[in-house]
Amino acid sequence: MPVLPGAEPYRHAGGEVGVLLCHGFTGSPQSLRPWAEYLAERGLTVSLPLLPGHGTRWEDLRLTGWQDWYAEVDRELRNLRDRCARVFVAGLSMGGALALRLAAKHGEGVAGVMVVNPANKVHGRYARTLPVSRHLVRTVKGITGDIAKGGVEVGYDRVPLHAAHSLRNFFRLVDGELPQVTQPLLVLRSAQDHTVPAADSARILSRVSSTDVTQIVLEQSRHVATLDHDADRIFEESLGFIGRLAPSVGKEGTTARG
């Protein structure tokens, strides 16, 4: 099945510091592409994979589950660790949950975590009834495109409930693993998010064991903040976060490999 225009994965071979970016549920790499390119232009090695079942048609997502999505980012992280001295993980929405689980499972193999509007729970009308409703209703209205400045997010206009049920199970799993997250953590949360409420970020912050924690509220953006008014701030804050923990970033000759 052809990949939707703009939804292609992105990779850049840079220096000794790597960053893995994880996109959200029913979305695609397009939502994080400007962030990935910003980091790549500053000499970092960057990986932004396309999650299984995403970026094609919603019928393909219906055939996948959280194990498939997590296996993809886990594989990308291992690849980055093979070629980089330090690796950071980042994500938007469900991608934030994927990044947090990578941190919980890989320990010192992850130098830091950066999440934008991270999701911790499935919300909405069908959330509580998913174990049953997924057998009765194939899809519900899509959740992509919550951007204050307008513009388009490449993703699905329908959410297959079988995949949503798997996502619900994944969030419960990750919630139980959050105390294993000890790495420095940067949380960027939109003041007005119509997809993931502020309670999800609060829950994550209350559960992790990280002591180096920074939370920033994005006043001008909605859920897909990486494509919104505060995108530049996200990019700059993330680079500053990485640079503080990996001081070689930005110094000539240390991250670029010619």
Rank of each mutant, 00 (worst) to 15 (best):
Q30C: 10
S31I: 07
S31T: 12
L32S: 02
L32G: 02
L32T: 08
P34Y: 06
W35Y: 14
E37T: 12
E37K: 15
E37M: 13
Y38M: 06
Y38P: 00
A40Q: 12
R42Y: 08
R42P: 06
R42V: 13
T45H: 05
V46S: 07
S47Q: 09
L48M: 12
P49R: 07
P49K: 06
L50P: 01
H54I: 07
T56C: 15
R57E: 14
R57H: 12
D60F: 11
L61N: 01
L63G: 03
T64C: 14
T64D: 10
Q67H: 15
D68Q: 08
Y70D: 00
Y70N: 02
A71D: 07
A71N: 01
A71V: 01
V73E: 01
R75T: 13
N79F: 00
N79Y: 09
D82R: 14
V87D: 01
F88L: 09
F88C: 02
V89G: 00
A90E: 04
A90W: 00
G91H: 00
S93R: 05
S93M: 11
S93Y: 05
M94L: 15
G95W: 01
G95D: 08
G96R: 04
G96P: 03
G96Y: 03
L98N: 04
R101C: 00
R101N: 05
L102A: 09
L102G: 02
A103G: 01
A104D: 08
K105Q: 15
G107T: 10
G109T: 06
G112A: 14
V113C: 08
V116E: 06
N117C: 12
P118F: 03
P118D: 08
A119M: 04
A119G: 07
N120T: 12
N120F: 07
K121T: 11
Y126S: 12
Y126K: 06
A127V: 10
T129V: 14
T129C: 12
L130V: 12
P131K: 11
P131T: 05
V132D: 09
V132L: 15
S133T: 15
S133G: 09
